[in-house]
Design a protein around this nucleic acid. Sequence first.
RNA 1: GCCGAAGUGGCGGAAUGGCAGACGCAAAGGACUUAAAAUCCUUCGGGGGCAACUUCGUACCGGUUCGAGUCCGGUCUUCGGCACCA
Length: 808
Amino acid sequence: MDYIKTEKKWRAAWARNKDLSFDPKSKAEKFYMLEMFSYPSAANLHLGHWYNYGLSDSYARFKKMNGYNVFQPMGFDAFGLPAENYAIRTGIHPMDSTRANIAKMRVQLKNMGAMFDWKYGVVTCDPDYYKWTQWLFLQLYKKGLAYQKDAAVNWCSGCNTVIANEQVADGVCERCSSPVIRKNMKQWFFKITDYAGELLSDLEGLDWPEKTKLMQKNWIGRSSGGEIIFTTASGESFPVFTTRADTLFGVSYVVLAPEHPLTDKLTVPACRAAVRAYQADAARVSELDRLSSVKEKTGVFTGAYALNPANGERVPVYTADYVLYTYGTGAVMGVPAHDERDFAFALKYGLPVKRVINPPDGALSELPCTSDGILTESGVYSGLTSEDARARILDRLAADGTGGHKTNYRLRDWSISRQRYWGCPIPIIHCGHCGAVPVPEEQLPITLPYDVNFTPDGQSPLLRHAGYIDTTCPVCGGPAKRDADTLDTFVCSSWYYLRYPDNKNKKAAFSKKKIDAMLPVDKYVGGAEHACMHLLYARFFTKALRDLGYLSFGEPFKSLLHQGMILGVDGFKMSKNRGNVANPDTYVSKFGSDALRLYLAFGFNYTDGGPWSDDGIKSIVKFLDRVERVAVKFLDAGDTGDGYGAAEKELDYALNYAIGAVTRDTEAFSFNTSIARLMELLNAVNKYENAPAVNAGFTRGVITDMLRLLAPYAPHFSEELFARYGAKKSVFLSGYPKVDKAKLVRDETEYAVQINSKLKARLTVPSSADNAEIERLALSDERIAPLFEGRSVKKVIIIPKRLINILV
RNA sequence: GCCGAAGUGGCGGAAUGGCAGACGCAAAGGACUUAAAAUCCUUCGGGGGCAACUUCGUACCGGUUCGAGUCCGGUCUUCGGCACCA
């Protein structure tokens, strides 16, 4: 078969007939199949796209054949830094390059032969789309979930912009690997921390990879403990956060973060110079430097003392950068005997180390001892276990008004301001009079101007565009300025799955009725690298929009799966530098898109991925050729024979076994074993050719079912042969084969026979035999009996349809 | 350092606690052919044996079990995530 020509023909037919498209009027159960949309980069579709989209489409087609009304849209995550950086390099405007790339990718994606519902597409840089991104921002703003604060942000020195915590890896920018420094700027944030508890607890009910759930769990980082208020002689008081309230009697100092407002206030004149110098140092130190000095603890004494509310003891107040202002209360109590960091700090500054916890086994271990134990030297709490003491001490403090139980999260609010051009404009106007004022909704969208000089100079490019930036205040009518920043692209991608089903809506981001009918997404497939970013943000958006009344569900993605990564032939990640990049186009133009898709399905465990192989794809072409040969042969065979004997029964068994296995494995995204079972079925058909009296009509039925099973994996190929077999409508509308259980019953069953758990023989027994009968047959078998002759049989273990173990 | 996942032939990879290596690739031998390609058949974890067969084998050490690639404890290696989170 001329694969290239055939594929082209069927793609045209599918596009014409639209039989396979999502039908909003259909009564069939909906199935929302979603793949993470793609970034329109200048390069062609790579194997990763094929692996993700091609095989997700196979799953979607499988669902379609099983009677679902499948909704499988595709769109483009079109804003973002790469297009802007490309523009800075080449002078080609991001709008133009992005448009061109999208056009190119659409063609490539269509040639893949996936049944994407293109008319539901979204492009995040279209004003039709980002109008609603802005609108959503305003809803969150009104609800107090978007706010501005002066914050130490991650500033990438390479990209000249603020980046999110999630985009910092080992102190450098995830994108360009330049050092990330800390810088104070007025930034917009989403209050994702308001949802920390729910984001954590709702993970439990999700059909997601355990690993991904765990990553989110750790990222959210719940820790329960308490706040304890220390008071200074001057009457100032501040809470510290601790998970170890049981060690309260061992406190020998307290520490405030250098950025803590009380640090300045508490510092006595004699210490002021040293503290100021230390604060200045700490502010200059980048995240990278902080990381590299993990071991070395530094800090300075403020000259102030604070009272321990438990025992009235007076302890010195230090400031040190090992205390993070952004976590907890920005202040901690120092318990050198029972915390590694405090121990190092105390050692360096000569502070007392007081043991207040004895190990439960009584043996005094070396300090610091960070595990739970029995309290000692702790007043009335001495003798209690750590666990009891924590509860009792915090209860007491709560009663006294000097503390109480408290849960903290590692998760921080989501920084969304970007000092970049190519993003969604922030719909806020800054007025000297009225402050930050939201743009009235009827003025949306605030369109991103085209004629902007976006060469980076550390400031937002939009700031230089007077026509954009200068405006009037919607409240007082006075002169005002638009917010010059753009939104993090993760904001755009946090709700695209909500827009797909209602993408033409001019009056609203989406209609609640439509979305409630279509969501949550039934199966979401995409890269694992989004575990703590996109997947967390999207969940936050869904919950926030639910609370705003726009949705009736709180989790967007019911079931999630990550495809693995296709590596270069050498086993390394594909990269131009290594020269190990395999280009899908090469194979598509040579063997067709079905062959590529089928090889991707067969050659890897889907969630693992693995190294690419040229030989592998050739073997798949061979498989398709063999299917075609046998199909054509029986098609031409006429009506020879109509008997149904042992050979036919055997082939029927193979067919029904394959139907069961392929159905199960496809449902589980175990594509490689699905294809393996199909190959076995093909081998069975080939073997049947040698049967004494070949029943061609019967075999054609088997082949028809085989084509149905193969169709999701090789759509064009199967459609072609299915048509040649006389079908009037698409194989994808022909239903999915069902297992005929009766055909799976065999007259005889083969058992493995073990003597004392060692495999010794095989035994065929009638399938109808019960355990007693099987035991009798095994023990009396003329080949088996001699194997344990002279020894007495103690026990016989029979595992149905598998194994007989004779213990002697 | 902490958390997690993985480790099976020459290779990609299979195995609800029950015949390890399905399916395929590569390789070797053979058939067809003037020849090649394509196709078809056979062999294909290691050792021993002419053979029927036997023995070892799923990173390593131990345990549970009639039976362990699979469960439990420990070690090593690789990969992923987090990393002063009080």
